[in-house]
Design a protein around this nucleic acid. Structure first.
Length: 268
DNA sequence: ATCTTTACCTGACTGC
DNA sequence: TGCAGTCAGGTAAAGA
């Protein structure tokens, strides 16, 4: 499940091979993979444009092209983005590809077909729907973000319009690190809890980036190798197993339609 | 307006 | 071995 650290790892891995390349023909192997315009218009607009650079915004990958165009990619749950020597890509689930001027292709693979590729001339819509970048925020900012809402903090953390990039895994991990029960209402969090939670969100995300993301099922780095972050989870995916801190069985419940893992003794 | 629910999808896994 | 049922979860859109 690509979240901020996984998307960041993909961007860092692709940048050296993509920056400066000129794009050629694009192909969609599944019609819905391209959001917005149709394939022929998409193709006319993308061909011949040079890649300037790329970056991550929330869980979105933004590839900046000459002429003010941006290729925006979201991996959703099972998406992969990689460079291949094979025109068809390297796996059975390639939904989109675009030729590069060095004979390789940029391939977008996605078993679940939830991911999307979009060509746009404005990134305003991203800024309108996304909250701030969690790694950029200081304590004061976290104090003010975690205010007012009556929702459970776990559900709140998944809302990309409040904070962009945190997903199910790192929400559970950050709450564990903070000793905060996922069902606590945001408005009831004490000031020091908001600060600690913000610090731990940054800590778990930064650590996961250092581990090059978590390979749970589908996520791979652009070179095809697995991340290491999953080896360091304290609660995610550990329902029924003993808490590393106190030995209590890790609980797994559903919260906001998402599997939620926590220690009922360490998190209050 | 804010929040919740549903739909989108299919591979992997479980149980019979 | 085969098959039905369940689960995984990010986001848009619809509903409350």
């Amino acid at each position: 499940m690509p979240e901020l650290p996984e998307v960041e790892t993909v961007v860092r891995g692709l940048a050296p091979d993509l920056e400066g390349r000129t794009l050629g023909a694009a192909r969609a192997y599944w019609h819905k993979v391209i959001s917005g315009e149709d394939e022929s218009h998409f193709n006319r607009a993308i061909q011949g444009r040079r890649v300037r650079n790329l970056w991550r915004r929330g869980k979105y990958i933004v590839i900046s092209l000459d002429g003010g165009y941006f290729l925006v990619v979201h991996l959703r749950m099972t998406g992969r983005l990689y460079i291949s020597d094979n025109p068809q890509g390297d796996d059975a689930w390639v939904r989109f590809s675009v030729d590069l001027d060095n004979g390789k292709v940029l391939a977008f693979s996605d078993a679940r077909k939830f991911g999307r590729v979009e060509l746009t001339t404005s990134l305003d819509y991203l800024e309108e729907k996304l909250g701030p970048e969690p790694l950029d925020l200081e304590d004061d900012a976290y104090k003010s973000i975690f205010v007012k809402s009556e929702r459970a903090i776990k559900v709140f953390l998944l809302d990309q319009s409040k904070l962009a990039g945190v997903g199910n895994i790192y929400a559970d991990e950050a709450l564990y690190e903070s000793g905060i029960h996922p069902g606590r209402k945001v408005a009831r969090l004490k000031v020091h809890e908001r600060i600690v939670l913000g610090q731990n969100i940054k800590k778990v995300l930064a650590r996961a980036i250092n581990h090059e993301g978590a390979t749970i099922s589908w996520y791979r780095k652009p070179d095809g190798s697995q991340g290491e972050s999953q080896k360091h989870f304290m609660v995610y995916g550990r329902g029924g197993q003993p808490c590393y801190t106190c030995g209590t069985e890790v609980s797994k419940v559903v919260m906001g339609q998402r599997g939620t893992h926590f220690c009922s003794r360490c998190q209050i």
